[in-house]
Amino acid sequence: MGKPSDLVQGTLDLLILKTIQLEPMHGWAIAKRIQQVSGEVLQVQQGSLYPALHRLEQQGWIKAKWAESETGRQAKFYALTAAGRGQLEKETSNWNRLSAAIDLIVTEA
């Protein structure tokens, strides 16, 4: 079974923040989006999103609101907070630095 740790450590947070940057989304939609956008490469175990979402919510990076979904049911929508935007920028630049460094090593060798 795939666990969140199958992703590069800590990237799940980044993926979530990035995914909801444009509009508030609920958990299932976030999972779908990550799968689709990554071209089915990133196989996130769907359920493992939720502990991550709750942790981000506790930390104040994202906020949640119950609202009607496209299918007409009540669902929990997550949106970025102002602090979350800052965090997203930070994590993005971190990621860029990290992937650039790895890229460098891999291609050099």
């Binding site: 175990q45 769907q46 359920g47 939720y50 502990p51």
Partner: peptide, 18 residues
């Protein structure tokens, strides 16, 4: 299958709460 063990995930989510 795609979701994982709901009971365990519920515990994990709860564990992130204050």
């Amino acid at each position: 299958r795609a979701f994982g063990n709901p009971a365990l995930l519920r515990e994990q989510a709860r564990a992130t709460w204050s």
